[in-house]
Computed example of a mutant assay.
Amino acid sequence: MHRFKDLEIWKRSRSFCSEIYSITSKFPESEKFGLTNQLRRASVSIPSNIAEGSSRQSNKDFARFLQITLGSAYEIETQLLIASDLGFINNEELKELSKNLESIIKMTSKFKSTLK
């Protein structure tokens, strides 16, 4: 069992979640139940799945939750590209968010590979 609060990927993903909430607060009101909601839910899913997986008794179970985490991260990547296409975020915002997300993806993948 791992202490999720000590995991750097959990700390970074929690911070990333705050970034997503901040950026989506600027989205049009008409997106409140669309892209805004989707991005927020997926971003909350990342640290939540890391935390839930860390409580599992086996590394195999934890690895499964990290796989779900990666799925949420790729979902966010797609949604950020769509938000950019629609003009809700600019290129600099997209670049910064993508860089932070890529870091989380790499860390999660590497950590997952150590659990085998």
Rank of each mutant, 00 (worst) to 15 (best):
residue 3 R to L: 11
residue 5 K to M: 11
residue 7 L to W: 04
residue 8 E to G: 00
residue 8 E to D: 10
residue 8 E to W: 00
residue 8 E to V: 07
residue 10 W to C: 10
residue 13 S to A: 07
residue 14 R to D: 04
residue 19 E to L: 09
residue 20 I to A: 08
residue 20 I to C: 08
residue 22 S to N: 10
residue 23 I to M: 03
residue 25 S to C: 06
residue 26 K to R: 15
residue 27 F to N: 06
residue 29 E to M: 14
residue 29 E to N: 15
residue 31 E to I: 08
residue 31 E to G: 08
residue 31 E to K: 07
residue 33 F to Q: 12
residue 33 F to K: 12
residue 34 G to H: 03
residue 36 T to K: 13
residue 36 T to M: 10
residue 37 N to C: 14
residue 38 Q to K: 14
residue 39 L to C: 02
residue 40 R to F: 00
residue 43 S to D: 06
residue 43 S to N: 08
residue 44 V to L: 15
residue 44 V to W: 03
residue 44 V to Q: 08
residue 47 P to H: 04
residue 47 P to S: 05
residue 48 S to M: 13
residue 48 S to A: 15
residue 48 S to F: 10
residue 50 I to E: 02
residue 50 I to V: 15
residue 50 I to R: 02
residue 51 A to S: 14
residue 51 A to C: 13
residue 52 E to M: 11
residue 52 E to I: 10
residue 53 G to S: 05
residue 53 G to V: 02
residue 54 S to L: 10
residue 55 S to R: 12
residue 56 R to H: 06
residue 57 Q to V: 06
residue 58 S to G: 05
residue 58 S to L: 03
residue 59 N to D: 15
residue 59 N to T: 08
residue 60 K to Q: 13
residue 60 K to F: 11
residue 61 D to S: 14
residue 61 D to V: 05
residue 63 A to M: 09
residue 64 R to C: 04
residue 64 R to G: 00
residue 64 R to K: 14
residue 67 Q to K: 10
residue 69 T to I: 09
residue 69 T to D: 09
residue 69 T to R: 05
residue 69 T to M: 08
residue 72 S to L: 02
residue 72 S to H: 02
residue 73 A to L: 07
residue 76 I to P: 01
residue 76 I to Y: 01
residue 77 E to W: 10
residue 77 E to N: 14
residue 77 E to P: 07
residue 78 T to P: 03
residue 79 Q to L: 14
residue 80 L to T: 01
residue 82 I to S: 01
residue 84 S to D: 02
residue 85 D to Y: 11
residue 85 D to H: 14
residue 86 L to D: 01
residue 87 G to W: 09
residue 88 F to S: 03
residue 90 N to W: 05
residue 91 N to S: 15
residue 91 N to P: 04
residue 93 E to M: 09
residue 94 L to I: 08
residue 98 S to N: 12
residue 98 S to R: 10
residue 98 S to Y: 09
residue 100 N to G: 12
residue 101 L to H: 05
residue 101 L to P: 04
residue 102 E to M: 05
residue 103 S to A: 04
residue 104 I to P: 00
residue 104 I to L: 03
residue 104 I to N: 01
residue 105 I to P: 03
residue 105 I to F: 08
residue 106 K to Q: 09
residue 107 M to T: 05
residue 107 M to C: 03
residue 112 K to G: 04
residue 112 K to R: 15
residue 114 T to I: 08
